[in-house]
C-alpha cells in the first residue's frame, strides 16, 4: 500500500467516525443526560437538513444556514420537551413511543409541506490533491468539526455551572431539586441542546446527500447502534463507540466491501452488548475500578 493510499484510507476512516459522531451526538446526549431515547432523532436530522437547504435556497450562506437550523431545532426541541417529554420522564417506553409518534408526525408534515422532492444544495469547498488521490475539503472540515463538537459539549457539561446542574439533574433529580436546581428548566435546556445538535448534524449532512422526507431513516440505524454500543455516558460513550464502529465499518468496507462493513458493524455491536450490557461506558467504569 502506498503512502498516499494509506493516508486517504485513514482520512476515510476518520470521516466515517466523524459522520457517526455528527449523527449520534444529539441522541447520545438526550439518552445519557435524561434517559430519553429519542426515536424522532432521525427526523430531527431531517428537519435540520430541510431548514438548511431552505435557507440556502433563499440565498443565505451555508455556515449561517446551518447555524440557523441548529438554533431552530434547539427551539423546537425545547417546545417538544415542554409539551411532550416532561410528562413522561422515568417511563422509558413512554418516551420512546411518544417520540416514535413524533417521528411519524414529522415525516407526514414534511411531505405535505415540502412535497416528495426538494432542491438540493451543492457540497461546498473544493478538493486537495494528495499523490494520485483527491480529498474533499468538506469531509476534512467535518472531521475537524466532529472534534470541535465533542470538545465543546465536554466543556459545556464539565466546566460550566449549567453543565454541573445538568449532570446533577440527570443523576439525582430529587437531590438536585432539593438543593435548588430548577430541574425541569435544566432538562428543557438539555433537550434543546440535544435537538440543536441534531439540527446541526442534519445541516452538515445536507450538502453531502439528497434530502427527502425519509432522509432521517438512512442515519437513524447507525446513530442508535452508536449510542447503544457507547452506553449511558454521552460523550465518552458516543465518541468511543463512533471510533470503534466507524473504524470497523470503514476498515472492513475498504478492505472487503461495504456490505461486509455493515455486517461487521452489526456483529461487533452485538458482541459488545453481549459482554458489556451497559455498552462501552461499562468498560470505562470497569477499567477505573
Amino acid at each position: 500500500m502506498k503512502v498516499d493510499q494509506f493516508i486517504v484510507i485513514m482520512v476515510s476512516l476518520l470521516s466515517s467516525v466523524s459522520l457517526l459522531v455528527i449523527v449520534s451526538l444529539g441522541l447520545a446526549l438526550a439518552f445519557g443526560m435524561m434517559g430519553v431515547i429519542n426515536m424522532a432523532h432521525g427526523e430531527f436530522l431531517m428537519l435540520g437538513a430541510y431548514f438548511t437547504i431552505t435557507a440556502v435556497n433563499a440565498g443565505i450562506v451555508l455556515p449561517v444556514a446551518i447555524l440557523i437550523s441548529a438554533i431552530a431545532m434547539g427551539g423546537l426541541g425545547m417546545v417538544i420537551e415542554r409539551i411532550v417529554l416532561r410528562q413522561l420522564y422515568g417511563r422509558i417506553w413512554a418516551t420512546m413511543l411518544a417520540t416514535w409518534g413524533l417521528s411519524l408526525l414529522i415525516v407526514g408534515v414534511v411531505q405535505l409541506v415540502f412535497g416528495t422532492s426538494s432542491n438540493g444544495i451543492p457540497t461546498p469547498l473544493s478538493t486537495i490533491h494528495l499523490g494520485g488521490y483527491m480529498l474533499s475539503q468538506y469531509s476534512l472540515v467535518l472531521i475537524a468539526l466532529a472534534g470541535v463538537l465533542i470538545a465543546t459539549t465536554y466543556l459545556v457539561f464539565a466546566r460550566t455551572p449549567y453543565g454541573t446542574m445538568a449532570r446533577a439533574a440527570a443523576s439525582l433529580p430529587e437531590m438536585a431539586a432539593a438543593v435548588g436546581i430548577n430541574v425541569s428548566r435544566v432538562n428543557m435546556i438539555t433537550f434543546g441542546i440535544a435537538s440543536a445538535l441534531a439540527g446541526l448534524g442534519g445541516g452538515l449532512l445536507a450538502p453531502l446527500s439528497g434530502v427527502s422526507p425519509t432522509f432521517g431513516q438512512g442515519y437513524i440505524g447507525d446513530a442508535f447502534m452508536t449510542v447503544v454500543v457507547g452506553g449511558a455516558s454521552p460523550l465518552l460513550g458516543a465518541s468511543t463507540a463512533s471510533l470503534l464502529l466507524g473504524g470497523i465499518y470503514a476498515g472492513v468496507s475498504n478492505i472487503v466491501s461495504p456490505v461486509a462493513g455493515t455486517l461487521a458493524l452489526l456483529l461487533v455491536s452485538m458482541l459488545v452488548l453481549r459482554f458489556l450490557p451497559t455498552g462501552l461506558t461499562g468498560l470505562w467504569r470497569k477499567a477505573r475500578q
Binding site: 411532550v84 413522561l88 413512554a94 411518544a98 411519524l104 414529522i106 415525516v107 407526514g108
Partner: peptide, 22 residues
C-alpha cells in the same frame, strides 16, 4: 386522502395515547 396523511394521523394518535391514555 393522500397516503401522507396516514403517518401524520398515526403519529398524532400515538402521541395522544402515550400522553393521555397510557
Amino acid at each position: 386522502t393522500s397516503g401522507a396523511v396516514i403517518p401524520l394521523v398515526l403519529g398524532v394518535i400515538l402521541l395522544l395515547l402515550v400522553l393521555f391514555l397510557p
